[in-house]
Amino acid sequence: MAAHAGGLKADAEDGPDMAAHAGGLMTDPAVRVEGLSRGFGARTVLDDLDLTIGQGEFVALLGRSGSGKSTLLRALAGLDRDVTGSGAVRVPRSLSVVFQDARLLPWQRVLTNVVLGLRGADAALRGRAALAEVGLEGREQAWPNELSGGEQQRVALARSLVSEPQLLLADEPFGALDALTRIRMHGLLRELCARHRPAVLLVTHDVDEAVTLADRVLVLDDGRIAIDQRIDRGQSATAHRESLLAALGVAA
């Protein structure tokens, strides 16, 4: 697919637009998914899936490759226009997506990339503040190509949080980074989420990442949520890790 002016229409059926009336009380969950099914041709990827994510809750979604993690995330983001399926999805209107690639526009400077989705006179100011938060103060006028992979992903984080979203959807955002950078990014993400309190759905294939970051870890299998485990900080990370690995069919 190429650039297409018609491509900006919102998904009317079960896209984020339904969400306008989901915002109400703080006690309402941020995300409510009921009976979600998605398929590509004859293959069913998501099969009558239910999911609820609370306000400010950090949920990690694990699963084997091809288990439909990204399909679920894209359904929540309203980016699955060409996929057949059914079900109800209620998400906040203000949501942001972080992709696996930083997806910065190479022809716009860093600050312009950050404020791309913002409107209003204070956009630049907010963009600068967001860049400072991810530790990239002073790089506003750099080109994305001049940044390292980790820095680019930090710009992407700034872009996704500058709009103060109620829901942050992250699709393996650190998958392409080296191990050291990834650890640093974990710290940053945790810090940012603690400050801005969005509900988070983090898709990952890294069990350690899920256990380190999330309040709750889900394992997707056969198109449904097979395991829904709350991470108890009192319990050792190793115990969580082993039970999750076992659920994924890997002997710990």
């Binding site: 697919m1 190429a2 650039a3 491509g7 983001a77 526009l105 791309l116 989705g117």
Partner: peptide, 18 residues
């Protein structure tokens, strides 16, 4: 125009660009 990466179009959609 045709060569613009569809990922950027998707980005625009996810940011609800006008």
């Amino acid at each position: 125009l045709r060569g613009i990466d569809s990922r950027y179009v998707e980005l625009g959609e996810s940011l609800r660009l006008r």
